[in-house]
Design a protein around this nucleic acid. Structure first.
Lengths: 307, 307
DNA sequence: TTGCCTATTTGTCCTAGACAAATAGGCCGA
DNA sequence: TCGGCCTATTTGTCTAGGACAAATAGGCAA
């Protein structure tokens, strides 16, 4: 696996990979005939673990060189901190998650889909998008990190979940509603390829009666600003998963704030660790928080119109 | 604007920016107190033009150094190449495409969605996925290359088209049918981030009565093979857009053929230029070709069962 | 025209050094 | 014991120029 492939796969830049090798003695890639780095699969797996650990707050200098004791550290965190900002549901939720995991482990796509659709019907779109979705995503991600699931099973989950949620959003949009909320433009910046968080956010926005336009993932900063003008958006909603580093997220948001119209609000959400609230940007802690934020927007909009 | 910001904004890598400067004398960024490159806004705009021209087929060596005559060259392409390799449909199809383009140009997401949904209803899912979809994709891509659309408009099209098509696939799957076709596992390899082609293919497969499982995009080769076993797939369907180079596609397919079970067929489709038929892989020229291929599979499966 | 072979172009990779921003840890005052 | 400030370390990104393989263009023969 080439250095570029590892960068794509693990989200660690080439520069960083080289300097870790120089400083910490890991990774230790082989070299091909042209003296280029070739990373064995096990080292790539370890790099993925490292990325998660560092994303969870560990210092690179402390963990990069460590052999496989990281696995233990990681497992502890996964066990110890499932509550930190995590799913708050009780036993019922855990049972639901187990059901979904079972279907994934059995490679049963139909059962997986039925489970998800059943949860949606039973709990409603709001709970499905705001609580169940994030919970399941975390459970699946943790199971993968523990080695209980293969990547292709996570892919299957993502695809089925996306499918069910998109259908629900379509139905909710068609059902219409107030249409008095802000115009919301949803997307992610170029370094963020994951669209699940965006989709869950869109569901909440739609339920709040907002007029949503989604550009999908990886829109260049300049184009986000152009689109904000073109669609006369009131709010730009950006999603940052744990895959994107806090530094990148901050830089992207600062760029965007500089080029976007000043009267457009920027709301940033997602599991990205260490992402604080940059100037001119609202940081939404979780998906249910969208509702409160929309309510706040409505109030201030009413004030503005009244004035 | 720092080199990292330009990389994000223009999609030109840092390495490439530096080597253009060395080789062609452009760009000529200023330097900050720390001797780091600072790109003025006008150079960044010119870099964006360059990216478009190069994407449209120009050689960097010929255009990077040129002053603002590029604008002229770009304008010429705008007029000269709207038909090159263009859509084959008749007048009706051209009118449909114009309608979709109009909605995109007007930034009217609702009208865009209605247009697409209307086309789906009028022409049926098969024509929508196999002819209209590829035609529209090409028309939109060409309009972007001519500078008539911004990237965010292409994103909007992709999102809306995906949404309409996913809903249709869901309905078609629920409607059931023969369920006698092959088990098909759909995905793309890691270097291919585009999922539209995959989705169109899935629609055709579903219409042919195949049992489809989609893993979404960018599944590692090893995991595709694992998933093929896990789902007892008869066929692996891979999609390669024009974005991926022929060499990467060939290498990926060869790797996959080596690790996938021997009795699983590999079908490769998509607009990837120069992708020939590697050993052990079937190259599908276009989406309607899927139907014939499924028919062929049925025949040979019947022979096998009979024997 | 079509196909092959060579020459040029072009992006990515390499090494190794430097520095600013972010973080941790110590220290002092309340 | 806790909060704020200041210094030391850590860490990612930037710099430079050199090298080479893959992709493309151009010439030539069939």
């Amino acid at each position: 696996m080439s250095i570029a492939a590892v960068e794509r796969d693990c989200g660690i830049s080439k520069d960083t990979l080289r300097i870790w090798e120089r400083r910490y003695g890991f990774p230790t890639p082989l070299r091909d005939a042209n003296d280029e780095r070739l990373y064995p699969a096990d080292q790539v797996a370890r790099l993925r673990l490292l990325r998660r650990l560092i994303g969870a707050g560990h210092r690179p200098g402390k963990v990069v060189a460590r052999p496989e004791a990281e696995l233990l550290a990681l497992l502890r965190e996964l066990d110890a901190a499932p509550m930190a900002g995590g799913p708050v549901g009780g036993d019922g939720r855990a049972a639901d998650a187990a059901q979904v995991l079972d279907a994934l482990i059995a490679h049963d796509a139909e059962r997986l889909r039925d489970s998800l659709a059943g949860l949606l019907l039973r709990e409603g779109l709001r709970a499905f998008a705001a609580q169940i979705g994030p919970g399941l995503t975390q459970v699946v991600g943790a199971a993968w990190a523990r080695g209980e699931l293969e990547i292709h099973q996570e892919h299957l989950f993502t695809d089925q979940f996306t499918s069910v949620l998109r259908a629900a959003i379509g139905a909710a949009t068609a059902a219409g509603g107030l249409r008095e909320g802000p115009r919301v433009l949803l997307t992610t910046l170029p370094e963020e390829p994951h669209g699940l968080g965006l989709l869950m956010a869109e569901a909440i926005f739609v339920l709040e009666g907002c007029r949503c336009v989604s550009l999908g993932v990886q829109t260049p900063v300049r184009d986000v600003a152009l689109a904000a003008r073109a669609h006369r958006a009131d709010v730009l909603a950006l999603s940052f998963s744990a895959a994107v580093s806090a530094g990148q997220a901050r830089a992207g948001l600062a760029d965007l704030r500089a080029v976007a119209p000043a009267d457009v609000e920027i709301w940033a959400g997602g599991a990205c660790p260490g992402l604080r609230e940059p100037p001119g940007v609202r940081r939404l802690r979780d998906l249910p928080g969208i509702s409160a934020e929309v309510a706040r927007w409505r109030t201030s909009a009413a004030l503005r119109d009244g004035a």
